[in-house]
Design a protein around this nucleic acid. Structure first.
Lengths: 241, 241
DNA sequence: TAAATAGTGTCTCTTAGACAATATCGT
DNA sequence: ACGATATTGTCTAAGAGACACTATTTA
């Protein structure tokens, strides 16, 4: 290795075909402390190579010739973080010429959601860490990854009205209060418990169970379950259709 | 050239990195005949090379190393059809392993809208033609392009509620009846003229002008103009942001 | 029984849609 | 005047949100 890496030669770089990679924004929900609101959070990996060595970045990697794009996203995020999301959706493809200082890089961004019980359960590695979505430490990320994160959040907020998203951040069974907490974390504002309940009851994709959650300090809430519809075409892959 | 092309060798193919291309679904509106409803239509190009030679396909081509993805979409659609859309938006990236029978092909699909006066005005070329969206002749297209068209239509239908789309299919000034025709063509159903008018008047992105459209057989309708908001983040590129 | 959350009832306001009625052009 | 479309008015039903109220548990 020389002190001037070969990729610094712009002329050479321009003759290479674009490299193809995937990156994934993995979002989970973290219960609020002391009655505070729940928080959206995500795992990031620290880059150990140039460019942007030392900076936090989205998990990802190159697309192998024998795997689909969604498989590449799932493989690379599992390889770096050890996580197994239950939801994966293609977000957008970023291909501006100068988004990497070293080479022409086209990145297909994905968007994953994790159940609460997986949040924080990443591999033991100092180069993998969780951040709250509003943590100032991640105001800057490698490449244009901050833009990708912001776009994922925008998509998440604009999709909640369709339902089908918030419960992917919870487990199989959940209380309406927990579900409301998820919506509040996503939308960033308080929701009226009464109206929230009525709205979801009319949704028909949420179903009451016979069970109640005991152990709280107060009246035990009923547990609900999600019964899904089909997803929107192409919006969900490859775990679904 | 041999009778067995080199790309038929699967082992060889698997060692190649994915090829990167763009394809664009270009949609326009065609006035209905005899008082019938307006129709959505699109230009297609006939493939002159393998694979799928002779089949109709979306305009597109490979991504050059020195252009952005949106620029590649604009360049390739202009090169094949001669059209200049006023709206271009990234749709989705298709990368299934077997979507091309000959090689691993990753295609970033774009979605463009044309003003009415450009509909039908393509280059003189027997390998370029316009089709109504419900024309049975395009039930089958090359590659997975039919799936891409269907996805573009789905996006268009689910976006009309945001406004800002239908008038990109018309010119600068338009009557409310023309705009209603566009919505009816997209949604595939009749809309009440009175309610449509009221809804748009409250939208504030549609503004009445002082002009009226003369020359009709009946009472001349007022002309309106679109006054845009900012687009949603990343949903619009590269002509905008 | 007090505190806290679960859950219900009711009211208002906005909006989508059905549909009647009026306005204004060309012929 | 007539036909056709433009434009306005009115009514109803459904949904979102504010908010008072009741229910049921633990401490």
């Amino acid at each position: 290795m020389t002190s001037v890496p070969s990729w610094a030669n712009v002329d050479e770089r321009r003759n290479l075909p674009p490299a193809l990679a995937v990156s994934t924004v993995i979002l989970g929900i973290r219960p609020g402390v002391e009655g505070g609101p729940d928080k959206l959070c995500l795992p990031l990996v620290r880059r150990i190579r140039q460019p942007h060595a030392g900076m936090w970045a989205l998990p990802g990697g190159p697309v192998d010739a024998r795997e689909s794009l969604g498989q590449a996203a799932g493989r690379t995020l599992a390889g770096t973080t050890g996580l197994r999301p239950n939801y994966l959706e293609q977000l957008y493809t970023f291909g501006d010429i100068d988004r990497s200082p070293t080479h022409r890089l086209v990145t297909i961004a994905y968007f994953a959601l994790l159940h609460v019980d997986q949040v924080g359960a990443t591999v033991q590695d100092p180069n993998v860490a969780w951040f709250d979505i509003d943590d100032p430490a991640i105001a800057q990320l490698a490449f244009d990854h901050r833009k990708i994160v912001d776009y994922a959040l925008w998509r998440l907020r604009n999709k909640t009205e369709y339902g089908q998203i918030a419960h992917r951040l919870l487990g199989e069974r959940f209380t309406l209060a927990a579900l409301r907490g998820v919506y509040e974390a996503i939308l960033g504002r308080r929701l009226d418990p009464a109206n929230f309940r009525r709205t979801l009851n009319s949704t028909a994709s949420i179903e009451a169970t016979d069970e109640y959650l005991a152990g709280g300090k107060h009246r035990p809430p009923r547990l609900y379950r999600y019964v899904g519809h089909g997803p929107d075409p192409l919006e969900v892959d490859p775990l679904h259709g």
